[in-house]
Design a protein around this nucleic acid. Structure first.
Lengths: 118, 118
DNA sequence: TTCACAAATCGGCGAATGCCGATAGAGGCG
DNA sequence: CGCCTCTATCGGCATTCGCCGATTTGTGAA
């Protein structure tokens, strides 16, 4: 473990999208719609410093490509970036993934059992 | 309700992907990554005949475009198509959506709480 | 200031996507 | 048979995506 200790990187204060709209669902799904980005999320199960370089080593992708994938995940609110010096700590916004999963479960429910707001 | 009665359209016999691979997750997510396709799924909460025409009316998209969206969802195993005469019944493969949602919840879990096979 | 390093951004390329109108194929009905 | 309805597929076009090497930006260290 040559890796520096990761700073606390909770999601406290970040907005938890309560009822996800179809637009938001599509936006998140699109961001998740690439194997490299799923792999990134699987590696990012905790805050890791110098992610781009780390992931580049593992995936064989160029640094710029990994940075692009990270940007896409960040813009879809799936990742949260925290700059600390010359490097960037990334962490998964678990609440967003969770809300998305819940919205999907809702779609997968039988209509008669489906949760309706109000 | 000018609509004909939909036939039974369960998923019996369809494979339920137990542990979804990252590749499969990305494939499903990509198929879900468009607002029109999310809307289609929301409308398809039960089996509906003549879906393409129905969705075309609601969305303003051309018939060929809707057919394309349906194909993408079908090829990602999110929809199940059953031909009956000149029309096609579509239904949501709830088990696939469910498995995908479960895989996402797994990603959203804290690492220490995560389910591991075996 | 100068250097080194991590990360983001730029420019460009080929491939894929989203959309449409037009066409083709399958089936029911006269 | 011909005609109509519904759906799938084709051709084409503009846009976006994924990837790369090269460059720029931001930060800390010497």
């Amino acid at each position: 473990m040559t890796r520096a200790a990761a700073p606390a990187c909770t999601e406290a204060g970040l907005p938890d999208p309560a009822r996800m709209t179809g637009e938001t669902m599509a936006r998140v799904a699109k961001a998740l719609g690439h194997p490299a980005r799923i792999r990134i999320l699987q590696q990012l199960d905790r805050c890791i410093p110098s992610v781009a370089g780390q992931i580049m080593d593992d995936s064989g992708l160029a640094q710029s490509t990994v940075s692009e994938h990270l940007r896409i995940l960040r813009e879809a609110d799936v990742l949260f970036a925290r700059k600390d010096g010359p490097r960037t700590w990334y962490c998964v916004r678990r609440s967003v993934l969770h809300a998305f999963a819940r919205a999907l479960e809702d779609l997968a429910l039988e209509p008669v059992l489906r949760h309706h707001p109000g």
